[in-house]
Design a protein around this nucleic acid. Structure first.
Length: 481
RNA sequence: GGCCCUGUCGUCUAGUGGCCUAGGACGGUGCCCUCUCACGGCAUAAACCCGGGUUCGAAUCCCGGCAGGGUCACCA
């Protein structure tokens, strides 16, 4: 049977880097096995969910080139793919659970539960409001064994059977994971407003959408147990589970949107990181294939497997992300890099830039000298300008009387170059060197300073070609005056 | 605090009882290449959390500590 996997984000903000990796792992698993990748929006937290967030997540996935076979925008055989659009379904399943004795209506108010929790916590010496949930409180509702139906709001709670021992599941990355039955309590299935909670909506949807494998972050390990109980109560076969390690910030704290700006996928786009570089980097954080580090998208599809996912949390390493980006900047097709570079060049002020030969030449010249597309664009700006401002120190050092004599000879040589390309321009250095006996540096540097204003640039032939005949000779003449 | 997961160089990791004198990558250091800056190449320092077992033999298996992370909501 072909696997059906899903990514089920909660639209409460931008696409988080951890979520992106979860999506990628699942997507890769689907592609590897010819399965289906489903995107489902879990927007039942009405306090925090926003349409803007849905769009942000969609945009993030698209940028990472993660496409979905079923979900928002593309539809599929088991709609809707947004939870708030199928509230009736949850109510129906909840009723079924009530009818079979696996759940009950609990008329206890939220405030009453909170008060009970607070009282319990205080009895254990905990008064800090934030620590209340750490007290190990297990709510026992007075409605647990009643079947009354009365007026007023109620939540539907799962009725945990009293059992001895432990139960668990076989995790595809971590192996056997178990928990004592007694650690579970009567969790809420449906809020008083009829909206399902995670542990219920998730199960209903995964079943309805015929999901076969649930791959998600390790923070969900503990929620797997109540979910397993819901599957049992409904008589549904649970999917296979795979829990992925978390990503920690450079400070070793869990990567959070609040504290870590790098948690935002699109921030990396803005920073000039290639989507595949981000994918490659984030893949290696928690998954490995022997000693290999760099993978093409195709290799990732051929090699990825849940069994090779690591067990422990990984720390975000900006240096390695940069190195990975530098690698793909150099390895990706020139046209692709040029197309992605163009917007950065535009926002750097070069409105005239277009996807032409000059841009591609610029990519070839500067992709070995840039860590990001932002940096590449910045370095390219002067090559699109008319004229240059000479760096005083550089001019003083290289545009001396001797330097200008050499520059004059170079000008003569360049004047005679018929086709203004690197192979034809590059010999200016060697030719003059053997003709005059001067060191190459004494020839190249004056040209470089004249052409770029500074002492740093690609090889002379490349630099001159990038500038173009007219502009290059113009700048040299300027320096010669 | 209860429960769950995890524990190899600074970081990401390879390693599934002998192949380990523990390998690779990023970062560090040194050298080479060289018209500048880069790219690249070569070399080098750097780790099996601690303690007990099991075994002829343990980074690998077991137990106990310790440490880190996660989770305990009418959030997901």
């Amino acid at each position: 049977m072909k696997p059906r996997v899903r990514f089920a984000p909660s639209p409460t903000g931008y696409l988080h880097i951890g979520g992106a990796r979860t999506a990628l792992f699942n997507w890769l698993y689907a592609r590897r096995h010819g399965g289906t990748f489903i995107l489902r929006i879990e927007d039942t937290d009405q306090e925090r969910s926003t349409p803007e967030s849905v769009q942000a997540i969609l945009d993030g996935l698209k940028w990472l080139e993660i496409d979905w076979d079923e979900g928002p925008g593309v539809g599929g055989p088991f709609p809707p793919y947004t939870q708030m659009e199928k509230l009736g379904r949850y109510t129906q399943v909840a009723q079924q659970l009530i009818d079979t004795g696996w759940a009950y209506r609990d008329y206890t108010t939220e405030e009453e539960v909170a008060a009970a929790r607070r009282a319990f916590a205080q009895s254990k010496g905990i008064t800090d409001e934030k620590e209340l949930r750490s007290a190990g409180f297990k709510f026992t509702s007075p409605w647990r064994d009643k079947r009354d139906v009365k007026d007023g709001p109620f939540v539907v709670r799962f009725k945990m059977p009293a059992r001895e021992g432990t139960f668990g599941f076989e995790d595809m990355v971590l192996g056997r994971i178990t928990k004592p039955f007694e650690d579970l309590d009567d969790f809420v299935l449906l809020r008083s407003d009829g909206v399902p909670l995670y542990n219920f909506g998730c199960v209903v949807d995964d079943h309805d959408m015929q999901v076969t494998h649930v791959g998600r972050g390790q923070e969900h390990i503990n929620s797997t147990f109540p979910q397993l109980m819901v599957y049992e109560a409904l008589g549904w076969a649970p999917p296979q589970f795979a829990h992925f390690p978390l990503i920690l910030g450079p400070d070793r704290e869990k990567l959070s949107k609040r504290k870590h700006p790098e948690a935002d996928v699109m921030r990396h786009k803005q920073n000039g990181v290639l989507p595949h570089a981000l994918s490659n980097f984030v893949m290696r954080l928690g998954w490995s294939h022997g000693n290999d580090e760099l993978f093409t998208r195709q290799q990732l599809i051929e090699l990825f497997d849940f069994k090779d996912v690591g067990h422990s949390s990984g720390v975000w390493n900006p240096d390695k992300l940069s190195a990975t980006n530098e690698h793909w900047l150099k390895q990706s097709p020139v046209d692709d890099v040029a197309a992605r570079l163009l917007p950065f060049l535009h926002s750097a002020g070069v409105v005239s830039a277009s996807l032409d030969d000059k841009l591609k030449k610029g990519v070839v010249c500067f992709r070995e000298r840039s860590k990001t597309l932002v940096e590449m664009a910045e370095k390219l700006v002067p090559y699109y300008a008319h004229g240059v401002t000479l760096d005083p120190a550089a001019a003083a050092k290289h545009l001396t009387a001797d330097g200008k004599v050499m520059l004059g000879k170079a000008r003569e040589f360049l004047q005679g170059v018929s086709t203004w390309t690197q192979p034809n321009l590059e010999p200016v250095v060697d030719t003059l060197a053997s003709a005059t006996g001067a060191k190459k540096g004494a020839i190249a540097q004056p040209i470089r300073v004249a052409a770029t204003g500074g002492t740093v640039s690609p090889g002379i032939g490349d630099t001159l070609e990038l500038l173009g005949r007219e502009e290059a000779l113009y700048r040299i003449d300027l320096a010669l005056k």
